[in-house]
Amino acid sequence: MKSPVASPVSFRQIVPWVVGVALIALPFVYRDPYHLHILVLILIWSFAYTSWSMMGRFGLVSLGHGGFMGVGAYVTALLWNHLGLSPWIGIPIALVCAGALALIVAYPCFRFRITGHYFALVTLALSGIVLQIITATRDYTGGSLGYTPDRTKGSHLVALQFDDKTTWYLIALGVWGVGLLIWRWVDRSMDRYALEAISEDEDAAAAAGVNVTFEKLKITVISALMTALAGALYCQYQMFISPDTVSGIAVSLQMVFAVVVGGIYVALGPTVGAIITIMLAEGLRIGFGTKAVGWDNLVYGVLLVVFIIFLPKGILGSLLERIKPSSKR
């Protein structure tokens, strides 16, 4: 089907390094705060979208990732504000919470073979629950009005709060890079073949000796942990979270949308999706100002439908396919 194993051409081995160095050097050469801000947002969301597509590419379509992201963001911020726990401790705790949540919901799902539509709808319930809990505990979380982590003065390493965009850019870039590395690691592992077999036919995979429940759980937990980290980072960077921006069904659908547009089966697909969606939203916002409210989602929605009908492999996936039709990809 698709096997993005790099062919041993030196050109293809050099390109990632060159691009990587260029990306690291960028904020030292170019310092426009607005553009850096957009880049940071793109990187953080790219990471979130990548983590969704970790399981999405194997046919495990989850609509609960908004829930994991919300847990990551809110647990970190709540621990900081109420207990004074530094995000350096708070983020791991948030990740553990998200991982536990993923296990609690996913294990029975996989054990009882809830797949396809049913899996999507069970996970939809998960993001619904997280959204409702955040709204219901408004005495602690601020409800739908949103929540702000307490500010320290200036940049502070312990509080993980930085004033300058450059630091955030580098952090986001690093996390994004790690996300791609995890993707690559999964892509080259035996798990990938096991999961692809599972997505084709669970019974056949089980008969061939694949531990179906365990493999699915593994990828789900990895994906949930990464999504929660993205949520925590988003919270620390924006210093403002609201249930609508980090949790709920809209965020889950937004993830699916960006990944489908970018390309679900290729490593950089989610990144391309993030670039397109964020640039589109920003472009409309700058071009039309407050009149653009609603227009970005209108365009998103139409694009999503058009893409699923005509380009189900996404922009990057289809491009790569067109560039080298003869290769294994």
Binding site: W295, L298, V302
Partner: peptide, 15 residues
């Protein structure tokens, strides 16, 4: 894919 396409329609109708 059908589920996701109707998800796109959700965005369209809402906006």
């Amino acid at each position: 894919n059908q589920l996701l396409a109707t998800g796109g329609v959700l965005f369209v109708l809402q906006s």
